[in-house]
């Protein structure tokens, strides 16, 4: 009787020991909670969601990340007199303006995107953008001024000196507007700041420019909804995503209506008028900067050429809702991933 009891005890002990060691080899889900915060920056609602162990960690990291976004806006907004881009626009005709590495690399990326998209995304669209003034609500420019402004647009007239990291203008009256890529870039920087603080599970949402890392604790993903372009408060579809950037450009974000016609903020650099082929474009890419610029380019290119353009870029996927409300996808897998 005692012998049997002993043997049983030994077996239980061995099993118990094995079970104790085994779980330690797996990753620990930790005891993470989710914290959120929102702020109005860059004329947009910026929302952050992070998963951390303590609220203190979350709040202080988000503070830093918000500060990073504010900093980016201060540096890059063409509408702010004190920004580096505004300075470039004032001085670029007289001499080449030097930039620090990060900003220069951003301009380089924007210039490359301008070329790759055949000018659908054009970082030199400032003369046209400043006429429309969407930062203040928007006004309809007169035909003559618009034609003059369009003539001044052209990424080929921008000179990027890679050796000296400086930028110069080769055409009178031209100017740089990074609006269609700056928000994404700011989001990438903010996400890097969160990562530097050890936060690997977060969402940064800057009014439609989203970057996500990791997943919601307890799940393997974050659930991201895509706004319906014509019905406010309704979702078109949702994706379960992790570690990616997703950006939507839509004609419903900034617009004004005059004479019964809707004029929105995504301008075609060739005509100077709002692009008309699409209602919204949603792009997934590795960085929010790329997704932001690609979404703008695809929107201007229209549903067919836009999808071809997105397909041509490695690691980029997306969908376009055209002017009639029909959906176009870059690939069938993405379509299958979407939930309605």
């Amino acid at each position: 009787m005692a012998f049997i009891a002993l043997k049983m005890r030994k077996n239980i002990f061995v099993v118990g020991l094995a079970l104790t060691i085994f779980p330690n080899l797996c990753c620990s889900s930790g005891n993470k909670q989710v914290f959120s915060e929102s702020k109005l920056i860059m004329g947009t609602v910026v929302q952050m969601t992070v998963a951390t162990r303590t609220e203190q960690e979350a709040r202080s990291a988000m503070q830093e990340a918000f500060a990073e976004i504010e900093r980016a806006d201060g540096l890059l907004s063409s509408y702010r007199e004190g920004s580096l881009i505004a300075k470039l626009n004032r001085e670029g005709h007289d001499h080449k303006v030097p930039f620090e590495k990060d900003i220069f690399d951003l301009m380089d990326e924007a210039a490359t995107m301008s070329e790759a998209s055949g000018g659908a995304f054009d970082l030199t669209i400032w003369p046209v953008a400043s006429l429309w003034g969407f930062d203040k609500g928007g006004v309809l420019p007169d035909k003559g001024s618009l034609e003059d402004a369009v003539a001044k647009v052209g990424y080929r007239n921008l000179h990027l000196d890679k050796k000296n990291r400086s930028v110069g203008f080769h055409r009178r009256g031209m100017g740089v507007d990074l609006g269609a890529i700056a928000k994404g870039w700011a989001v990438d920087r903010a996400m890097a700041r969160l990562a530097a603080r050890g936060i690997d599970h977060a969402i940064i949402d800057a009014g439609g420019d989203l970057r996500i890392s990791g997943s919601r604790p307890g799940k393997g993903f974050w659930r991201i909804g895509v706004q319906h372009p014509r019905e406010p408060g309704v979702l078109l579809l949702t994706f379960d995503l992790t570690d990616t950037a997703i950006v939507t450009s839509g004609d419903y974000e900034r617009f004004f209506i005059e004479g019964g016609v809707r004029y929105h903020h995504i301008l075609d650099p060739v005509t100077g008028m709002p692009a008309t082929g699409c209602q919204s474009v949603t792009v997934l890419a590795a960085t929010a900067a790329e997704a932001d610029a690609a979404a703008t380019a695809a929107f201007v290119l229209g549903p067919e050429r836009g999808i071809s353009f997105l397909r041509s870029r490695p690691g980029v996927r997306g969908l376009i809702v055209d002017a009639d409300g029909a959906l176009h996808w870059t690939d069938g897998d993405l379509e299958k991933m979407a939930r309605r």
């Binding site: 609602v45 929302q47 420019d209 991201i224 909804g225 706004q227 979702l235």
Partner: peptide, 18 residues
């Protein structure tokens, strides 16, 4: 001005691209 109710509805997405 933004008026916002914090949190997420059960089943609602964690964020919305718009």
């Amino acid at each position: 001005v933004v008026v916002r109710l914090p949190g997420t509805r059960r089943g609602a997405p964690d964020a919305i691209v718009q």
